[in-house]
Computed example of a mutant assay.
Amino acid sequence: MSLDEVRERAGRNLLEVVHLGDVLVGCTTVRPPKEDTSTATVIARVLPEHRGRGFGEELYERGLEQARALGAAVIETVVLASNEDGLRFALKHGFAETERYVLPGDTAEWIDLRLA
């Protein structure tokens, strides 16, 4: 992603980067509900070497709080199909798969999930 793309996304989403001291651990993205819906998207990402230590729980809870503070009644997330840890985390936390797709011109499969 280019710096301009990051700036554009930061203008419409809540983005946070998480460090443990000087070491990058992960990040979150909260896409606020649009005017015509009460659905927000919460994405928590933890780098593989930091998984299984509770960082995902903290990031996810913070993202949920932010989404609800923005008026979200429905929470969704999106996970790369190849990210087995991320998919397992989402399913463990009450999300259910709603759709699988490949973006035009891409080969990576994505999974949309909704919090039950």
Rank of each mutant, 00 (worst) to 15 (best):
L3A: 14
L3G: 04
E5Y: 06
V6L: 13
E8K: 14
R9Q: 10
R9A: 10
R9I: 01
A10L: 01
G11L: 04
R12D: 08
R12M: 11
N13F: 11
L14V: 15
E16Q: 11
H19L: 13
L20P: 02
G21W: 09
G21D: 09
G21T: 09
D22P: 04
V25L: 01
C27P: 00
T28N: 08
T29W: 10
V30L: 05
R31C: 06
P32K: 05
P32R: 07
P33I: 03
K34S: 13
T37S: 15
S38V: 15
A40E: 02
V42C: 07
V42F: 04
A44E: 07
A44R: 03
L47Y: 11
L47T: 10
L47W: 11
P48G: 02
E49W: 09
H50Y: 14
G52P: 09
R53S: 05
R53M: 13
F55W: 15
G56E: 04
E57M: 11
E57R: 13
E58H: 15
L59I: 15
L59W: 06
Y60I: 02
E61K: 15
E61G: 05
R62N: 15
G63S: 11
L64H: 07
E65M: 12
A67W: 12
R68D: 06
R68V: 06
R68C: 08
A69R: 10
A69Y: 01
A69L: 08
G71C: 08
G71H: 08
G71M: 08
G71L: 08
A72V: 14
A72S: 14
V74I: 11
V74R: 12
I75F: 05
I75A: 04
E76D: 09
T77V: 03
T77E: 02
T77D: 01
V79M: 06
S82Q: 12
S82W: 09
E84D: 15
E84M: 10
G86W: 07
G86Y: 09
R88W: 07
F89Y: 14
L91E: 14
H93W: 08
G94S: 08
A96R: 15
A96Y: 03
E97Y: 03
T98M: 08
R100S: 05
R100C: 02
Y101H: 12
V102A: 06
L103Y: 04
L103I: 01
P104V: 01
G105I: 03
G105H: 07
A108I: 09
A108K: 12
W110E: 12
I111C: 01
D112N: 09
L113E: 00
L113D: 00
R114L: 04
L115W: 00
